[in-house]
């Protein structure tokens, strides 16, 4: 009933890889947007904003991504009857929820690193909070966000493999399906692993390039904790 792993099996895997890339791109961008908002809130002078973002960030970072995925996938239709996002949308929502919290930590760390020396200088110039943030702090903070951001993106790609439980046909699920056809999990998942490796290693090379170009380097021990294993 099984047939051997053949070249044509690469096609569904490549399609899966493409969906993984799309998934990570969309939830990465959304995660960065929400993460910026959360991270700024986390360092803002408003106590309520700080509280809300702190609670959100600690909750998401203390719960496994897989549980968050289940929450979104099963919970949304139950909590909001009539709202039935498709698999891709659910996956995007789940990964965005999680991504936002990690990006927020990176944003917070970078803002704090810059603010140490620059905040008082800006205060001395009489800039108000928003001016200080937009003209002084953020432009510098963005630069040092990039290296840990690269690490986060790699984590996102790896964690996106977990949405396989929702049946979305991303790379890992494509691997499952090809395994069912060929009965050859070794070859299949070695190819799958290779594809993930190419994506992740490619991203990390981009990060190195950035570090070389700009000279911005972040001590790996001082990073906001890495996202995902």
């Amino acid at each position: 009933m099984f047939r051997p792993f053949e070249w044509q099996d690469l096609i569904p895997l490549a399609q899966g890889a493409w969906l993984t890339i799309q998934l990570c791109a969309v939830s990465g961008i959304l995660g960065v947007i929400f993460g910026l908002i959360l991270g700024i809130a986390r360092t803002s002078p408003s106590r309520i904003a700080r509280w809300i973002s702190t609670i959100y960030i600690s909750c998401v970072r203390g719960i496994p991504v897989l549980v968050i995925i289940f929450f979104v996938f099963f919970g949304i239709p139950l909590l909001f009857p009539g709202l039935e996002p498709d698999k891709f949308a659910s996956a995007v929502i789940a990964l965005t929820c999680f991504a936002a919290a990690y990006v927020a930590e990176i944003v917070r760390g970078s803002i704090e690193a810059v603010a140490k020396g620059q905040s008082e200088a800006a205060d001395a110039l009489g800039l108000n909070y928003w001016r200080k943030l937009t003209y002084v702090i953020l432009p510098q903070a963005v630069k040092i966000m990039v290296p840990p951001g690269i690490g986060f993106l790699i984590g996102l790609v790896k964690d996106s493999s977990l949405v396989t439980v929702t049946g979305l046909l991303e790379l890992t699920h494509a691997g499952n399906i090809v395994t069912n056809l060929t009965g050859d999990p070794i070859k299949t998942f070695l190819v799958v692993a290779g594809m993930y490796f190419v994506i992740c290693y490619g991203i990390s090379r981009l990060g190195r390039l950035y570090e070389k170009r700009t000279g911005v380097h972040v001590d790996p021990l001082k990073l906001p904790e890495p996202a995902g294993i």
Partner: peptide, 23 residues
């Protein structure tokens, strides 16, 4: 180190769980 850090844990677990019996 690079192989592990650039692939998902789930795929690593699959390789161990499904692939080893084949060996």
């Amino acid at each position: 180190i690079e192989a592990i850090r650039n692939t998902p844990l789930l795929v690593q677990l699959y390789l161990i769980y499904f692939a080893l019996p084949a060996l």
